[in-house]
Design a protein around this nucleic acid. Structure first.
Lengths: 220, 220, 220, 220
DNA sequence: GATGAATGAGTGTTCATTCAT
DNA sequence: TATGAATGAACACTCATTCAT
């Protein structure tokens, strides 16, 4: 078995154990047992328990970073119909976290209150994500696609909402994720207040609502 | 120094250390050093490390429970102008978490991935909170105050949004909390989509927006 | 409440707890709770946990010493019929340990393996007892009442036998102690081998056996 | 150094310390210091302080069990001359406890008043031993080899006598054990009372006594 | 490269004893 | 005298990490 393969084997075992028990209550013993490697072997590939957890975080962020990059890409085509792009975005995002369900759980559940080292890394990620979203919101507001709002706050709220929903999903396997995402996006866009449309627009809007594609977004 | 006072002293010290480092990485040694009491003294007041953390959680929940109770009370006066009540609600909530800034941080940051015991307690709290909010949303939708939406999802989103904002606030002391709350409420109610009002209503609405009181809500 | 009375109260409480749990696993907390006195009060009367246990041992030995003294007194009337004296001796002994059942249990059960301090005291007591018994055996052998034997060994055996029986009795309340003592004394005197009497003596002996008084001894 | 060897090294160290101080007052620190191994090493071989003590007890019982098994085997050849068997029995027993002098001390000295777990094990052993001896006595009485007696009591007395002698021996190294055993067996069989033999038998008996082999028994 | 026995600093907790009130 | 809050040394046990094989 070559080096890379064995490292992946240990990493996967670590993911399983961390997801099961959380970082602080997971011991190196449990990881090496799950991975069926010797104690010393573990330290051949990772220089500490912290190290393997950091590697995990990095892996997850590399995956997510691609989704984030796509959000960023939204800046470009202003005035255009963004609905397809958004739909793809959500779809990619779900694919990413579905593929990394256990990692996702670890990130959301163990993401804080660990040693400061991890905290910083994770905070940094969310800050970056927040800034990207905020920038996007600003652009879209300027373009008249979104109404004016405190984009700093809204970006954080969106992250919070998504986190909470993903956390629910990740804890209870049975959740019907697609419909939830749909509800979530509807809410993010429209809020709670009843929308008062001008007579003609109203009909169009309700029509549009019905044809709203799975995982898609309803943009005017 | 009397019994109650010293217990409070140790509790406060524990809050500081837990807020700084999180539950799992905090040792009893650090708490007693922060509190300047002897090892034995700690165990005179709390029967274990778990116990003092549970005491912390309970304290926080007792405070929060009052705010939650008020949310519940909103059911009663349907059709009435709720804006004053909401304003008070937010104000009380801010007062509570401001008074308990470190505790709040602990709850948000250490809330998951601890020993199952705590997890259960905290999950239970959020579930209860979620159900109350959802029930409220349902009532208000029936009353025509809110538009129809997936209230299960929206309740979780609201909690997620609030959590995220509070987390931001709690991590960086400098945040201007009241304006943030204002932005948050505006977003929760109105979402991102630009609202298209009928000609006459539009003027009224923008007028209203200007006079929107601090921490108040904009109800039609 | 006067000094002596309170001391007795604490001592009695200690006896109960020690008998229940043994010396090493009994904490001062348990004693003061049983005695319903404050922590400080305990140390007003006894300077340590060791001290109260030593006091207990001493008390027990003072009581037993009287029985031992009586054994010693047996030296005097040589040639005389000792059966009445022996009977009284056994009776007194039983009375003593019955009155001090809990203390007896402590002495037999906790008697060894404690801190060396106690060990020495208890060993000393048994050594003394052993020497007294041995001396008596020697005298009685010289007087022709007992057959010749290794009195050092026999003295120890007698102590061992009595200990074992008392231990049985003290652990299980239900034992029929008097018949047991009878069996014990019969064995101590006659051993296992079938006794081959001269024809005439045989009849006498079996006659005697039948009339053997409760707790009494069968001496020729 | 291989695994088994080091385990034995720690066990031996533990035996020395337990024999010196008794179980409750012996700390793991003392054992590891005596064994010159690190704290963690101890727990590599034994999962707790209780565990190593239990291992000790079990080891001792396995050795003793063989002796006990031989007692049991005595049932078979009834009516036969048992003296050789008994002699071997005593010899084996002495060999066993001589080889395990410190263990023997621990068993006799720490045998009661420990945590219930050990108590149960040890009580069970003595109960079993007692039952075996009693059963043997009953058989031998039926066979006319022993005189009639309260075998329940006598079995316990024999155990008590042996315990006491072994305790004496184990505490003071200088004891001449073989002659002691001889005296003990003589006493167990013949008691204190002078045996009155018929004229002819008397001579035979005294003759036999002279030729009594070391550790042997005098059977008719 | 792979192993797993060995390590020891660290943990949470107990409890005999002291001492200010 | 009587109290009980305070103490801190000691305990049994864990576990991330090292290193000789």
């Amino acid at each position: 078995m070559n080096r890379k393969k064995r490292e992946g084997l240990i990493l996967d075992a670590a993911i399983r154990v961390f997801a099961r028990q959380g970082y602080p209550t997971t011991s190196v013993s449990e990881i090496i047992e799950e991975a069926s490697v010797a104690r010393g072997t573990f330290y051949l590939y990772f220089k500490s328990k912290k190290d393997i957890f950091n590697t995990l975080i990095d892996r997850f962020f590399v995956e997510l970073a691609q989704n984030v990059a796509k959000i960023n890409a939204l800046n470009a085509p202003r005035g255009a119909d963004l609905s397809g792009v958004f739909r793809q975005l959500a779809s990619d995002f779900i694919t990413t976290i579905t593929k990394n369900r256990l990692l996702t759980k670890i990130m959301l559940v163990d993401s804080r209150g660990l040693e400061g080292e991890f905290d910083a890394k994770i905070s940094q990620f969310y800050d970056q994500l927040s800034r990207i979203i905020q920038h996007n919101l600003d652009l879209n507001i300027k373009a008249g696609l979104f109404r004016n709002c405190d984009t700093g706050v809204v970006a954080r709220c969106m992250i919070g909402s998504v986190k909470e929903m993903v956390a629910s999903w990740v804890m209870q396997e049975s959740m019907e994720i697609e419909s939830v995402i749909q509800g979530l996006i509807d809410y993010l866009l429209n809020g709670l207040n009843p929308i008062v449309y001008a007579a003609t627009e109203k009909a169009v809007a309700s029509e549009e609502a019905k044809s709203l594609p799975r995982l898609g977004l309803n943009f005017h």
